[in-house]
Structures are given as C-alpha cells and as structure tokens.
Amino acid sequence: MDQARRVLVLDDSEISLEMGRFVLEERGYEVATALNLAEFHQRLEHFRPDLVLTDHVMPEMTGAELVQRLKRDLATEGIPVILFSSKPESELQRLATEAGADGWLSKAEGIEKLGELVDALVGEIVF
C-alpha cells in the first residue's frame, strides 16, 4: 500500500477496540476507534475512513442498524462496512446480509481473521 488505508472501528468494549487496533496497525492500517455513536460520528467526519468495522451488540443501536444508516447516506454509502460480533456465525451472516454489510466476522473465529478480512475488502476497493 502506498498510503495507509484508514479503518474506523466502533465497539463498546475497550478491550475489543484495542485488540482490533493492534491487529490492523500491525498490518499497516491507520486506525481510529470509537466507544459510542457520538465518538463514531465525530471520527467518521474528521478521519474519513476507507472501511468501517462495527460491533453488532451495542447499547445505542445495533451494528446492523448502523450499517443500514451508513448505506442509505450518500456521504457514506460507498464505504465498505464489516459487522463484527460474538454472535454465532450463521446469525451474524444473516444480520450482515440483511443490513447490506460488505462482510462479517464472528469474534469467536479470533482476532487474527480480522486482518485477513480487512485486507480482502480493502484489496477490492478502487482508490
């Protein structure tokens, strides 16, 4: 990558955020994190990510609802979004597909898979 691709991670768990940040930064990504929707919207506007990674189970709204909002907004509809959750993979796949997410990953598969999925999605993006 000539220029580091930017990934914005939303999760209400600080541990998940830091693990995600570590894995992605080790792969050469520039990473911003948010613990809640207010932080997410602030970072979204100023950080301008190439990809969004969102947890599904959060207090303010589900990740699937966030995916739907991002995909309906002209300013963010082109940003790939990955739904990331501890839900069983079959349920997570259904939720992600119905919401219009570009990918999904069960936390049960391990954080290592996160980097591979992000690499694959970023590789498909034409910059």
Rank of each mutant, 00 (worst) to 15 (best):
115 G>F: 09
116 E>R: 10
82 I>Y: 04
81 V>F: 01
82 I>E: 03
81 V>A: 01
65 E>K: 00
83 L>M: 01
102 D>A: 00
31 V>Y: 00
123 G>C: 04
64 A>I: 07
66 L>F: 01
39 E>P: 00
36 N>Y: 03
70 L>K: 06
56 H>K: 09
2 D>W: 03
3 Q>N: 10
122 V>T: 06
35 L>K: 05
101 A>Y: 11
81 V>L: 06
76 T>P: 11
83 L>C: 12
87 K>M: 15
115 G>Q: 11
103 G>A: 04
56 H>Y: 15
124 E>V: 03
120 A>V: 08
30 E>A: 15
64 A>W: 06
105 L>Y: 03
49 P>Y: 04
114 L>C: 09
97 T>W: 03
95 L>C: 10
113 K>T: 05
68 Q>M: 11
52 V>G: 00
50 D>N: 15
18 E>D: 12
100 G>V: 07
52 V>N: 06
72 R>G: 02
26 E>D: 15
107 K>H: 02
41 H>C: 00
67 V>C: 13
111 I>P: 05
67 V>M: 09
52 V>Q: 04
8 L>I: 10
103 G>I: 11
126 V>M: 02
19 M>Q: 08
107 K>A: 00
22 F>L: 13
101 A>M: 07
15 I>S: 08
114 L>R: 10
96 A>T: 09
109 E>Q: 15
117 L>S: 09
83 L>G: 09
27 R>Q: 12
78 G>P: 11
75 A>C: 06
33 T>D: 01
69 R>S: 08
72 R>F: 01
100 G>M: 03
80 P>A: 03
124 E>H: 13
44 L>Q: 08
80 P>K: 02
113 K>F: 06
59 P>L: 04
51 L>D: 05
119 D>E: 12
13 S>G: 07
1 M>G: 13
97 T>L: 13
77 E>Y: 13
20 G>Y: 01
120 A>K: 14
55 D>C: 01
97 T>R: 15
88 P>V: 02
126 V>Y: 00
78 G>E: 11
104 W>C: 14
82 I>L: 14
25 E>D: 05
63 G>W: 03
89 E>Q: 14
102 D>M: 01
99 A>P: 11
116 E>V: 15
48 R>P: 03
47 F>M: 07
17 L>S: 04
24 L>D: 02
102 D>R: 02
123 G>R: 02
45 E>L: 09
73 D>E: 05
99 A>H: 07
98 E>V: 14
84 F>L: 14
84 F>E: 04
109 E>M: 13
15 I>T: 12
56 H>S: 05
24 L>P: 13
110 G>V: 09
17 L>G: 07
61 M>N: 07
116 E>F: 06
92 L>H: 10
108 A>Q: 14
32 A>P: 04
